[in-house]
């Protein structure tokens, strides 16, 4: 087992090291969600009112957990693109010819991508108080756990796709067709309630819906508005995202092991 653990550690360490050496990625990681939050959040809250929300409730408060979910989604899934890069630049061969099982490499990649997502989420959490969102230590800790599960499953999803992709362009295409719908249907931007029934069923099968809902469940645990914020119980959310994490990491390990 030590050999496998070492392999996971190496793959993780490499991804994290490389991340910190690329300044544009760090700037993008912080900048993108901030843009969404400040521009879209403020713009939307000026014109929209949440269905059934009492007066004085800020739409921004509703969006904030959604934006964290969005950041984790994008960062996690896109971090798997490094597999496509590594294939193109040859490093993947070095890993494949090493005496380590392929599944360990896939797990290492999943942990690496999740770590970077978690860094981003942490920065966003630190911004929260400045937007008038109250966070307690318990909230932050529970959020971390939930966010890690979400990040892990989404990075695995990215790995499943990247294992089959030969080119950057192909990966980008698939990602756009997959990631954007996942995001829009997740309830990150607008709630599930009050939409057309066909859309509601789509939103119900989007696993990310439960991720975003779990984040809100934790955020608004003590809030009087909890009822209008969340759709499911925290237990349901946790069950779905944990299931998603397990299924996706197994599929990721399988796809990566059988990649050409």
């Amino acid at each position: 087992m030590t050999r496998e653990l070492k392999a996971i550690y190496v793959i993780w360490l490499r991804d994290v090291l490389r991340f910190f050496r690329e300044k544009p990625r760090i700037i993008g990681m912080i900048g993108q969600p901030l843009l969404y939050l400040l521009i879209m959040g403020n713009g939307l809250s000026a014109t929209l009112r949440l269905h059934g929300a009492p007066p004085g409730f800020s739409y921004l408060e509703f969006m904030y957990p959604g934006i964290i979910g969005m950041s984790v989604l994008f960062t996690s899934v896109y971090s798997a693109i490094s597999i496509v890069w590594d294939r193109e630049f040859g490093f993947l061969k070095e890993v494949l010819v090493a005496p380590v099982p392929r599944w360990a490499v896939a797990v290492g990649k999943a942990v690496g991508g999740s770590t970077i997502s978690m860094l981003q989420a942490t920065i966003l959490l630190m911004i929260g108080p400045f937007l008038g969102i109250k966070l307690t230590a318990v909230t932050v800790l529970s959020l971390w756990c939930v966010l890690f599960i979400i990040a892990f499953s989404l990075t695995s999803l990215g790995i499943i796709i990247a294992s089959r992709m030969e080119s950057m362009e192909g990966f980008q295409m698939i990602m756009n067709f997959l990631v954007m719908p996942l995001f829009f249907l997740s309830g990150a931007m607008f709630p599930l309630r009050g939409v057309q029934p066909w859309m509601e069923s789509l939103m119900r099968i989007d696993p990310l819906t439960y991720g975003v809902d779990a984040i809100r469940n934790i955020f608004f645990a003590q809030s009087p508005y909890r009822e209008i914020m969340v759709q499911f119980s925290l237990a349901t959310d946790l069950l779905v995202i944990s299931g998603m994490a397990l299924v996706f990491i197994f599929l990721a390990a399988y796809s990566f092991s059988h990649a050409k």
Partner: peptide
């Protein structure tokens, strides 16, 4: 040693060797 380079160009020479060593236990 492959025909095309399989080094990680964004890491140092030492890091490349270290990662290899860890992969080979």
């Amino acid at each position: 040693v492959f025909q095309e380079t399989t080094l990680d160009e964004k890491l140092t020479a030492r890091e490349n060797l270290m990662f290899h060593g860890l992969l080979y236990n």
